[in-house]
């Protein structure tokens, strides 16, 4: 699913450049659950943004689904995100002026799905998230856990094979966080490739691929608790 080689990312700063990623290479097979771990500032978010094409690398190559996407332009990446990638952010990033339904519909709007169909589809996904009776609420009228489930519904509505989640439980209490992780694990069992940035060793232990980062470098690869067999989180 994902293969990167010598991926490097420099941020130009006033007093020189900051090297956030240093020749990172790894592979995440299709259908696996992967964790990216590391201290704060080690480059996890930077890496995830590169994987989702929200930012471009300074150097290195990237294959997504067997295709070399290293030289993708802005428009190609927009299409790619729309079709094959779902994002879940730590800060939820829902649009406050829209209902839960409107937020979930958004990827389908840019896929030019007709209004009636995308409403049905969004409603169906919200139902699977247990939010059937919240679809007309604004994000501010929802709890943190509910907001994150709306965000996951938005990531899933276009049925992308890859889900990228940057500390999806970072803004939630332990119990709600567990619920969200269970949800991601269930999605993984349905065959999706899921990459989670997490600080939790417990979560990482259940992942088939664990990428350890330190100061922008990738530490030697370690396998999950039982050598790559899919497990439920928690």
């Amino acid at each position: 699913m994902i293969r990167v080689e010598h991926l490097t990312k420099d941020y130009p700063m006033a007093g020189g450049t900051v090297r956030a990623l240093h020749e990172v290479s790894f592979e995440i097979p299709t259908g696996s659950l992967a964790a990216i771990m590391g201290q704060s500032g080690s480059g996890k978010t930077t890496l995830l943004n590169l994987l989702g094409g929200l930012d471009g690398p300074t150097a290195g190559r990237y294959w997504l689904n067997g295709r070399d996407v290293s030289d993708f332009g802005v428009v190609e990446w927009s299409r790619e995100r729309n079709r094959t990638i779902g994002f879940v952010f730590q800060a939820f990033n829902l649009l406050p002026s829209m209902s839960a339904l409107g937020n979930v519909e958004l990827p389908l709007v840019y896929r030019r799905v007709a209004p009636r169909q995308r409403r049905q589809r969004a409603q169906a996904v919200l139902e699977t998230m247990g939010l059937a009776n919240r679809s007309h609420h604004r994000p501010t009228e929802l709890s943190g856990g509910q907001q994150q489930r709306v965000a996951i519904a938005r990531a899933l509505v276009g049925d992308p094979p890859l889900l990228l989640a940057d500390e999806p439980t970072g803004n939630l209490d332990a119990e709600t966080g567990q619920e969200i992780l269970d949800l991601l694990a269930a999605l993984h069992r349905q065959g999706r490739t899921i990459v989670i940035v997490t600080h939790s060793a417990e979560v990482a232990a259940r992942c088939e691929v664990v990428l350890q980062m330190r100061d922008g470098r990738m530490l030697p690869a370690t396998a999950g608790a039982d050598g790559g067999v899919a497990h439920d989180l928690g």
């Binding site: 990033n93 840019y110 276009g158």
Partner: peptide, 16 residues
């Protein structure tokens, strides 16, 4: 600005 970021993240091209 943030809304624009979200829209771009879910697939809006600059022309959108």
């Amino acid at each position: 600005t943030r809304e624009i970021g979200v829209r771009r993240a879910v697939g809006a091209v600059p022309e959108d």
